[in-house]
Structures are given as C-alpha cells and as structure tokens.
Simulated assay, not measured.
Amino acid sequence: MPANTPIFVCQLSADKSWALVETSFTYGWIPTEDLAFVDNEFVKNWETGRYAVIIREHISILDETNRFLVQASVGHIFPLEAISADEMKISVAMADPNRQAVIRHGFVPVKAAAQKPLRFNPVNAAGIANEMIGEPYGWGGLYDRRDCSAMTRDFFAVFGIWLPRHSSSQVKEAGLYVDLRGLSREEKEKTIIAKGVPYLSLLWRKGHVMLYIGHKDGRVLIFHNMWGVRTRDSLGREGRKIVGQAVITTLMPGQELTDFDPSVGSYIDHIAAMNILIPENQEQSAK
C-alpha cells in the first residue's frame, strides 16, 4: 500500500512484530515497523478536508531542507497545506522513535500534483493515462507495482472517484452496470462504442478489468495493465508472450503474432460487463 495510507489495526502478533490491518481497499498482515500509531489530535490535523493528489509517477517528496521524506505516484493523496507558484506544501506522516505518527511538511512541484479532485475532462484523463502507460505489472501489488485493478483505482482517485480494490467489485459496486454476456464479438463492440463513455467506462472479464478510452476504425481501444498473451508453437507447446506493463490495445491483443493461441479466445470473447462511472458534480461542468 502507498506511504501514508490510513489503516485500522485489528490485531498484533504474539511477538508484536506483525499487525493485521484493514484499509479502505484491502486487509492483511504488515510488519509493525512499517506503521505509526495516531491519536485524536493527529487525526484532527490530518483530516483537513483539503487534499493534494499526485499526478506524476515516482515523485520524491522532500522536506524544507530538501531531504527525502517519501516517494509517491499517481493517485496518492496527502493533506494540502498551501500552494505557491512553484510547489505545493503538503502534510506527510512520519514515525517518531516510539512509533507514534507525527506530521512533517513536505513539498512537491505543482506540475506533479493537483488539488483533489482534478477536474475530469478528456485532456486531463488522457494526460493521466499517458503518465501511467508503460508502468510495470505487479500482481497483487508485488514490488509496489500495480496490477489491472490497482491501475484503474489509482487512475480514478485523481478525479475523486473511489473504487474498491478488486476487479469484480469495481464493476459491480459502482456506476451503471451493462451486461455483455451472451453477445457476439460484433455486438459487444457495438454496444461498448454506443453506450460507453471514454475514460469513464470499465470493461470486465473474470480476473481482469480494463478502461475503455475510445475506438478507431470500429475497434474498441482499452487502457489496461496486462501480464501477457497466450501462445502455442508448432509443436503444440503452450507459452506466453510477456507484456507486463500498462498498455493500450484492442480487445484482441496478440492476434498479430504468428504463434498466438486462438483456442483460449481473446478479451472480447470473455468480457462479461461494462460499468459506466459518472463523477458526482463533475460530468456537467466537464462538458
């Protein structure tokens, strides 16, 4: 999870070295050395109601003496203290020697952050996607990298839209649900193009979520973080062409490969639903 994520500590291990924690999007065990405890005064100062959201990848947040505090990427959120012509002053939680959280002042260039939420419009949406494209895949957040649902979650966080962590929940628990089951390939693409809103529509197949960004020559285009494409060589041996990053593709990636394995089908064959997300109080102003 990103630095400065609020957590609820459910339980400590017998030796106090591990904590079972819950966040707004997941739960699990983490080393206690990676957390800091807060009191009511800290919470009061932290929950300001005014926040900054990071809009660039791999940004170092520095203190007033130019020393490193934390690294942040697209979608990470911090309390906003002040804005100048060149930088934003934000609150950063750090642990003191007693593992109590204290607030430090951090600074981030204005080009790397925005006052949350960033206004949703096609230019801003495409800009955030361009920033995230090429970022490596990490299943379940492995090595602090994003998988498909973490990518969509961080993308929409910039615009003040909260999504659950898992792909199926993202499609089923918010927005307008459109059932695509039972449709042919052609019917699916026509439905997505007719009803989908670019950069505001999620496409889902079991285990994978994608962002619909538009269409070209009658083909749906998606932005997603994918692991790879199944292949099969001339001897019938299964393999995989590794992509391992956030990319823009059609719903049939890999079909141009000579060893593409058509027996498992493409995304278009397995897509079951679309979810159209509408930002509250922003859609009309963005038009």
Rank of each mutant, 00 (worst) to 15 (best):
P117S: 06
H105D: 14
H215E: 15
R145S: 10
G75M: 08
G175A: 12
D63C: 00
F42C: 01
L235K: 11
R205S: 08
Q11E: 13
H105G: 13
N225C: 12
V43G: 00
M252F: 06
W18E: 06
M274R: 05
Q170R: 06
L203M: 03
F8C: 08
E22G: 00
V178I: 14
I248Q: 11
G196N: 09
F68C: 00
M88P: 08
R99N: 15
P198M: 03
A272H: 00
S201I: 00
A273L: 01
N4I: 04
A125E: 09
G196M: 05
S167C: 07
R232S: 12
N275G: 13
F155L: 06
I55T: 15
G228T: 08
L69W: 04
K116A: 14
Q284R: 10
N98Q: 14
E280I: 04
E189H: 01
D179S: 06
Q245N: 10
S24N: 13
D63E: 10
F25G: 00
I59S: 10
M94R: 11
Y143E: 14
T26Q: 13
L80V: 05
H58V: 01
V108R: 06
N275E: 13
I242H: 11
E64G: 09
N45D: 15
G138I: 07
P97E: 09
M94C: 13
A93V: 01
T23N: 07
A113W: 07
G218H: 06
T5K: 09
R230W: 10
M151R: 04
K16I: 00
T26E: 14
P109K: 08
M88T: 05
Q115G: 12
G244W: 07
K216C: 04
P198Y: 02
H215L: 00
D15V: 01
G28N: 02
T258E: 15
P6D: 11
N124T: 10
P164C: 05
K16C: 03
E22I: 08
I90P: 11
G160W: 11
